[in-house]
Design a protein around this nucleic acid. Structure first.
Lengths: 193, 193
DNA sequence: GACTTAGTTGAACGATCAATAAAATACCTC
DNA sequence: GAGGTATTTTATTGATCGTTCAACTAAGTC
């Protein structure tokens, strides 16, 4: 998982995986028919850990559903900061590298995205009474993913957190326009307290 | 350019380039010290042709600056449709594949993005009198790029134009919130006539 | 103690990778 | 047309790619 995330699938050789895992090639191919099956297992693992490892900690920390959503985005921001804006979304990377070549990979990336959007959509649903009635939460959740992935791409291309922060700021501004007039607006550059 | 766009840099072998270009390896290495320099030349070429080949035709077709911007996004939509949602933004692809490894590549991707955002920002500047005074056109132009790249990523991952269209729809909705009350709103799903 | 099963090992495979060097040809100048 | 430079061709390099396989060890069963 780590190597595919850091270097991509194609750029990671089986030899390096074996070395860092302290395993021998025969053992790998005893369990996995081919390198590609290793990637499929990685994508399955992401599906499995997304909620308990990524979302649960954020959702516990915040009560307000909108805080939860933006807290989730903050997690990705943390990763960008920690890696000096070199590491992106592991699913997005794989999707862009292989989605058009391997159908199975594409399917699993889609399922990961689906789960992500479903979790965000659930938060938005909970915040529904603060949102204008014409807001479609499904489309808005998809927009959250779009903005986050696009923001990560720019942050990596510029090796700077600025474009990512700018994207989130615009997104917050948009969300505030979708809130009912009596709702408390989303605060810029920090979670609402 | 075509092969790097279709397959990515790493996945495209020199042998294939030579075959399709009907050239021999010696000739390639006579002009380019290494494969990487070929990529740099490709990125330079994108810089050179972006305005005349991509933007000029769109800007000629529409008069209204906001129509021009969304007409530009439509160009990317056309490419997704033509390629059955397999081909993304050539710069974005390369940026995600190599930005964190080759500094020079990263710089050129950034310059391509800069030019793109600068052109969009210029349109927004021209539409400035219809926008609320607190709108920062630079940040908004960056947001346009963010949404487009994120939309393309999802369209490829799902091999469907839907997420892209949904992203553009949300973006249009947002822009309409930024317009002054007396301004004509951006129409959904087709250029304003 | 004989036999089976599960799992591991590491050398080796053919293919492909980017890159090179030298020979051969085309082009230009005088 | 001779001489020299620019460019192309051909053949090959060593490295690395993912993958295979026969030999081997360890554990369990009867």
């Amino acid at each position: 998982m780590r190597l595919f995330h850091e270097q991509g699938y194609g750029a990671t050789g089986v030899a390096q995986i074996l070395k860092e895992a302290e395993a021998k090639s025969g053992s790998l191919y005893y369990y996995f028919p081919a390198k590609e099956d290793l990637l499929l297992a990685v994508l399955e693992q992401y599906k499995k850990i997304m909620k308990p490892a990524l979302m649960a900690p954020v959702f516990e920390r915040y009560e307000d559903p909108l805080d939860q959503v933006f807290g989730l985005l903050e997690k990705y921001r943390d990763m960008l900061i920690k890696t000096n804006c070199t590491l992106g979304c592991p699913i997005g990377n794989i999707a862009l590298e292989l989605a058009d070549r391997h159908e199975e990979v594409r399917r699993l990336c889609g399922e990961n995205f689906d789960n992500w959007k479903s979790a965000v959509g659930q938060c938005l649903e909970e915040a529904g009474d603060h949102l204008r009635p014409d807001v479609k939460v499904g489309e808005l959740a998809s927009f959250f993913l779009t903005v986050m992935e696009g923001g990560i791409m720019q942050a990596r291309a510029y090796r700077s957190i600025e474009p990512f922060d700018a994207a989130i700021a615009s997104l917050k501004d948009y969300v505030n326009h979708l809130l009912k007039n009596n709702a408390r607006p989303v605060q810029q550059s920090s979670a609402r307290d």
